[in-house]
Amino acid sequence: MVIPVHDVNPVNRTPWVTYALIAANVLVFLCTPGTFGPAGGESATEQLCRLQAFLDQYALVPRELIHGRLPGAVPTGEVAVGAQGPGCVVGPPGYDKSPVLSVLTSLFLHGGWLHLAGNMLFLLIFGNNIEDRMGHVRFLLFYVVCGYAASYGFALLNDGSAEPLIGASGAIAGVLGAYLVLYPRARVWVLVPFLVFLPLRLPAWLVLGFWFVLQAVYSKGDAVSGAGTVAYTAHIAGFVAGMVIAWPLRAGTPPPPEPRGLLFGRRARPTW
């Protein structure tokens, strides 16, 4: 898997929405129970119970979204000690949850520092150009629509799942799909792990096309990001949605600048 670090594709306006989305994701993650480990004298079990209660309230659950059946009992965030040891107390939910709205809130939840960092890196590199092309408001709407498309795409294929689905990767996959459509020839600096990390400058169609193929291959063993794995079908659905939405903008999109003198990270020899 290649790691993108920068694209050679300047923007004409400050991508305020992209920056705001990154800030919102980081802020929500910092407020998520368990981000910094057990608080005070809290045990690991108490931390886990608080996290489960938090996710049950704000994360997307495919079964709830597709069938509209909310559970009668959920973790309350409290711990009880039973014959088999401490466990999470389960009781009637003390909140009203909208499964449709939970799609939006789940886009700002992440399962760990690496999950968050990876998503924000892709959003920072590729989101600024899509926002520059669409404008601030339309880009925000585009981001949310792609997030919903990714979430519904996954939920429809896993309608019986009660596992929470979290993460911004579905919406960001839409950004990648739009970038592939609008700027396929833009150059992207990537790090390729091969004994050491090799810096290469590759065309966007190769970087993002390879990323999409990996998602399709990995989707054979699809699972849910909240459980420490990845919802690859959500990535595919978001990517395709982004391509479809961006397609009408292709004709009026100016091509990215063509760098000269460098080829795949190394200076090319002049031809005579």
Rank of each mutant, 00 (worst) to 15 (best):
S161I: 14
W113E: 08
Y95N: 03
S106Y: 06
L157V: 15
F108E: 08
M120W: 04
S151E: 05
L101T: 05
Q84L: 10
D96R: 04
F108R: 03
G85M: 04
L107S: 15
F122D: 06
N158G: 10
G135C: 09
G167K: 03
L104Y: 15
F126E: 12
N128I: 05
N129I: 11
G112R: 00
A162F: 09
R138L: 06
L156D: 12
L114M: 10
P164I: 11
F126C: 13
H110S: 14
I125H: 09
S161W: 11
V103I: 13
M134R: 01
W113D: 08
L156R: 03
G94L: 09
G85Y: 04
L114R: 06
V137I: 07
D132R: 01
Y143G: 02
F126R: 04
R138A: 09
P164N: 08
Y148E: 01
L107G: 09
N128G: 12
G153C: 08
G91P: 10
E131D: 10
A162L: 13
P93N: 06
G167A: 14
R133S: 13
H110K: 03
N129Y: 02
S161M: 11
L141K: 12
F126W: 08
D96K: 02
L123D: 08
V89K: 00
P93L: 03
M134T: 09
A171G: 14
G111F: 06
G91H: 10
